[in-house]
Design a protein around this nucleic acid. Sequence first.
DNA 1: TATTGTTATACTCTATAACTATA
DNA 2: TATAGTTATAGAGTATAACAATA
Lengths: 126, 126
Amino acid sequence: MAAELPVLQRHGLTMWGYVVLLALNEDPVRTQAALAESIGAAKTRIISVLDGIQQAGLIARAPDPGDRRVHLLSLTAEGRRTRAAAQADIQRQEERLLALLGPDDRRAFLRALHRLSSIPPEDLIP
Amino acid sequence: MAAELPVLQRHGLTMWGYVVLLALNEDPVRTQAALAESIGAAKTRIISVLDGIQQAGLIARAPDPGDRRVHLLSLTAEGRRTRAAAQADIQRQEERLLALLGPDDRRAFLRALHRLSSIPPEDLIP
DNA sequence: TATTGTTATACTCTATAACTATA
DNA sequence: TATAGTTATAGAGTATAACAATA
C-alpha cells in the first residue's frame, strides 16, 4: 500500500476507489449491494467511495426502472480511461519492484502469495 | 495481521505491545525515545502502549538518576515470560501457515519478503 | 414485512501541536 | 534554549444501528 498509494493518487484515486473501478470494469453494471459484496465490503462502507468517484465523473448511478430502490452502477468513458491508466501505472510499479527479485524467486513469491491469500479467514485462526 | 492478532490476544498483547517486548528483549534497558526510534514509531505513539504493558506488569519504567527527564525501560520477569510464550506461539502459527507452501517456494517466499522489505521508503515511490 | 441505499454515531488508530519538568 | 516524556486535539477509517423509500 505504501508503494501503490502514491501511484493511485496521481490519478486522483483512493485505494477503495480503484478497487471499485476494477470491479465495475469486470462486470459493467451492478447494484451497490452486489458491488459491495463482490469486493468484500459492507454496503455502508462504499457509499462515500461511490460519492467520490461519481463526483469525479468516473461512474454513473442510474435508478433501475424495474426496481426503483436499486441504483445501477456503471463506468463512464472517463472512468474507463482513468481505470486503464491507473492500472497500467500500478502494473509498471509492480514490475519495477518485482524486478528486484530473481526470476525464480519472483515466480515462487507470487505462487506463495496466491496460496496464502486463498486461505479462508476461518482457517487463519487456529 | 489477521492471522497473528488472535494469537497475541491470547497473551493479552496488542501488535505494538508485542513489538515493544521484542525490542526490549534485544536491548534490555532503553529510554522511550530510543525505543520509539528503533521500532519506527513516533515517541507519542508508544506512550499508551507502554502504559498498557506496564500496567500488565510486563515492563518497568525507572527514572534515570543521571538525567531525571529520562525513563529507563526494562522487561520484568513476567514480561520476559510473556514475550517468550507469545513469540513461541507466533512462530508456531507462522510454521502452520508456511507449511502450506512447498519447501522451495517457502524459502523463496521468505527471501523475497526480506528483499522487498529492505527497500528504503524513499525508493518505494518512483 | 423485507430490502436498497443513506445517514448518524461511536470507536479505534494515527499525526501534530501544546505542555511540564528537567537539563 | 533544548530535550524527554506527556496530554490534548483533530483527522482518518471502520462497524453498527437507525432511517426513508420502495417492494
